[in-house]
Amino acid sequence: MNALVEVDNLNLHFPIDGGFFKEKLTLRALTDVSFSVEEDETLAIVGESGSGKTTLGYAISGLLTPTSGRIKFGAALGGHSQDRPVQLVFQDPFSALDPRMMVGDIVAEPLRLQGVSRAERLQQADDVLEQVGLPAESARRYPHEFSGGQRQRIAIARALIAKPKLIVADEPLSALDVSIQSQILNLLNKIKRDRTISYLFISHDLGVVHHLADRVVVLYLGRIMEIASRQDLFATPSHPYTQALLESVPRISRGRRKPGQALKGEIPTPLSPPPGCVFHTRCPRAQEVCRRQVPELLPAPGRPEQLSACHFKD
């Protein structure tokens, strides 16, 4: 496999104004993050709110500049060019589309920036709208005439039109009904069968990731807890945080829940992350060493491809 994007020891900090007389604070949104996205691969980034998923997606899209570390694009991405062939799809299909613009123009926007004529743009918009399963005359209608799921299709069409090598999709399903989520998951899978494209698919829900991802990165408080193939991650989750995320996916097969199984507490503030393992304040397995020593991202026992950052990993 060929790496499309290589993220190498990425740190991204936001300086926070502590207020008058107070010292400047640093919010550590991402710490020592390294991984790669391969060509034609779907890599899922999973973690709770505030774990740094969007920050990571923005950094890869070039919307945020890393504090340190490198994001390297492989040959397929034209090295280090400014106009990287990366497109973004956002969570909220309602605010992401300009209500005053015709859908055709919204979808063709990336081509306008490339100087393609309007007639040619609208032609291509029609084609790509059809590919995402929208009716033929959609290009000449306005966003408010579409449902949430249809608007997310429009956003995906816009991302596809410039033929990107990578689409960063930031929680593209969270605002949709479950029944519509399945439609969009199928669409993303279909697009991937039809062309060579990679996805960086961001979600807080491992249940959703299962039907799409080739590999999964589990993020917590700006650090990678686990990286594994989908098969390994779901069959033998190694990290206690991954296990907790899996446990929290609602399932109809379990019946009424037995209280007390949920992961306790909340993600701490990245203004002062806990020392040692950042997960130790909530980890059911935490020992003294976890409070002192940051666990390294190392292979799980007997599974060289599955990396887990835990002193007591499975």
Binding site: Q150, Q181, S182, N186, G207
Partner: peptide, 22 residues
């Protein structure tokens, strides 16, 4: 239909069932 559209982590499928339309 609602039951079948739910992604089931016990049984991954390439193609999820969907209820057509809205």
């Amino acid at each position: 239909g609602l039951i079948r559209t739910l992604p089931d982590i016990a049984q991954p499928m390439a193609e999820l069932y969907t209820i057509p339309g809205s």
